[in-house]
């Protein structure tokens, strides 16, 4: 299968990419790792007239850890998976990334591409939500920072404008008393999440002072499980807090896992993620 024809541009700076985006408008698509976009183009589910390949923009690659974690949007999964500093600063990210697809997908796919694509079964949206991360974007009007909670608007839809480019993802560094974990029930062939849950807790003097839990894979977009969070803050343990974690959620069933089953798995994986996060926060 071959994509339909398009015009190809490979800018070497963010400024150049932005002016191409403005010039071509709706016709154009950004090409990052290409591991969501090119498969869609091969199946002719997407047929952009112009591709703006941002792989040559060096300023978009790399991880800087300095008070927080600043990840360039074009940083590949493989870089995040093997980044030593990241493992101690924000270990839940490499933990989740190592579960994505396979080595070849991780060698090409990027964090910015995954967040922009907002696949309902992608892994990192749950992690970014649980860590209350931020997405930095640049557009014709300059730079803005979008809170993870405001970023995912619907299935495959985000708060990003068509003329905007994600430049970076900002995550916190986790210290003593903080713990986070990601657990996932992968689709056996693709590796995508049938259900994936990320949990973050902060302990203060033996009790939980902050708790965020987010689920991906189950519904049209990744969401926070606020009822679970409230229960944990109210003193419930992981099992009690998650017993009804799937209730009231917008869940999409398919041939691989029906709605009822997915709902049940949300509770199971939420419990596991919370338990792990709590252990890590206490350890």
């Amino acid at each position: 299968m071959i994509p339909s024809s398009f015009e190809y541009h490979a800018p070497t700076s963010v400024a150049e990419a932005l002016s191409l985006l403005q010039q071509y408008g709706d016709e154009a698509k950004i090409l990052a790792g290409g591991h969501s976009l090119l498969p869609a183009m091969k199946l002719r589910l997407a047929a952009p007239g112009v591709l703006i390949d941002i792989n040559k923009i060096a300023e978009l690659r790399g991880v800087v850890i300095n008070g927080n974690v600043n990840i360039g949007s074009m940083t590949t999964w493989a870089t995040l998976e093997h980044h030593d500093g990241l493992r101690s600063a924000c270990g839940v990210l490499p933990e989740a990334v190592a579960m994505i697809g396979d080595i070849q997908v991780r060698n090409r796919g990027t964090i910015g591409g995954s967040l922009a694509h907002a696949d309902p079964a992608a892994d990192t949206p749950a992690v970014v939500l649980a860590l209350d991360g931020q997405i930095r974007a640049q557009g014709p009007g300059g730079e803005r920072t979008i809170a993870a909670g405001d970023f995912f608007t619907d299935m495959l839809s985000t708060a990003l404008e068509p003329t905007e480019l994600i430049t970076a993802v900002i995550l916190p560094t986790l210290g003593k008393g903080e713990g986070a974990a990601y657990v996932k029930f992968p689709h056996p062939a693709s590796g995508y999440a049938i259900v994936g849950v990320a949990a973050y807790v902060k302990m203060d003097g033996g009790s939980v002072s902050t708790c965020r839990v987010a689920v991906t894979g189950a519904g049209p977009k990744a969401v926070r499980l606020t009822d679970v969070e409230q229960a944990v803050l109210g003193g419930a343990d992981a099992a009690a807090a998650t017993a009804n974690a799937g209730a009231g959620l917008d869940i999409l069933g398919d041939i691989h896992a029906g709605e009822e089953y997915r709902r049940a798995m949300v509770a199971v994986y939420a419990k596991r993620a919370l338990q792990k996060a709590m252990e890590r926060a206490s350890g």
């Binding site: 190809y8 290409g34 591991h35 070849q104």
Partner: peptide, 27 residues
């Protein structure tokens, strides 16, 4: 395959394995 899943097309690009069905030649 048509879905980037089978790996029959894996080559190395600058030393790293990649599915050559999911990379453009111009890249």
């Amino acid at each position: 395959c048509d879905t980037s899943q089978c790996g029959a097309c894996v080559v190395h690009i600058d030393g790293k394995s990649a599915k050559s069905c999911t990379v453009l030649a111009v890249q």
